[in-house]
């Protein structure tokens, strides 16, 4: 399971990088085609929006892989150790249930419902675009199961600790007096 997760992490990393780079290029092309070439592209608005939705969903899956979504742990952290761990399992199971019901089942139905609804400017259908919901949902479901197993085996703790950045800070802040340019 660990090796599958590593491969998925890697794949999602590159999917997010490519989608983000595409997003920047599409918006830049929208400006260039209009202001410089004087021939505004017809597809850039729709193309940028849909790339953005895919970026949002796949990056969300990537962040689930790191357990990085925002949660309020103030109360949970006051619980005794065993309950803390049990609660962490429940949290993963709730995430799993939501993902299966809404993203995979609901998203799949949304995709089939809009399968024949053409987009206005791109040669795809809205239903094809909705496929990002069940696909990202499947990845999130895998990550939830992975962490349930990890929590039960004890290989993962109940929380992800944010790394203390104080040392990094000291290293990256430049001195105020100007550095000589190379």
């Amino acid at each position: 399971m660990d090796s599958v997760k590593k491969a998925l992490d890697r794949a999602l990393y590159w999917i997010v990088v490519v989608l983000f780079a595409m997003l920047v290029l599409i918006v830049v092309w929208q400006i260039v085609s209009r202001q410089v070439l004087g021939a505004p592209a017809s597809w850039t608005d729709e193309g940028a929006r849909l790339t953005f939705v895919w970026l949002g969903l796949f990056a969300a899956a990537f962040v689930f892989g790191e357990r990085g979504h925002i949660a309020v742990e103030f109360v949970a952290r006051k619980l005794p150790g065993r309950s803390e761990r049990a609660l962490a399992v429940v949290v993963q199971l709730i995430t799993l249930a939501f993902t299966v019901v809404v993203l995979i089942w609901g998203g799949g139905r949304a995709a089939s419902n809009a399968w024949l609804q053409n987009l206005s400017a791109l040669p795809f259908t809205l239903g094809q675009m909705y496929l990002a919901l069940p696909v990202a949902g499947t990845l999130i479901a895998f990550y939830s199961l992975y962490y349930v197993a990890g929590l039960l085996r004890g290989t993962h703790g109940p929380y992800v600790e944010l790394e203390d950045e104080s040392e990094v800070v000291a290293a990256t802040v430049e001195p105020l007096t100007p550095r000589k340019e190379a």
């Binding site: 209009r34 505004p40 592209a41 017809s42 608005d45 400017a121």
Partner: peptide
């Protein structure tokens, strides 16, 4: 056809 350049904009 109206004589201008069409520009899609949100």
């Amino acid at each position: 056809a109206l004589g201008g350049i069409g520009t899609p904009l949100a």
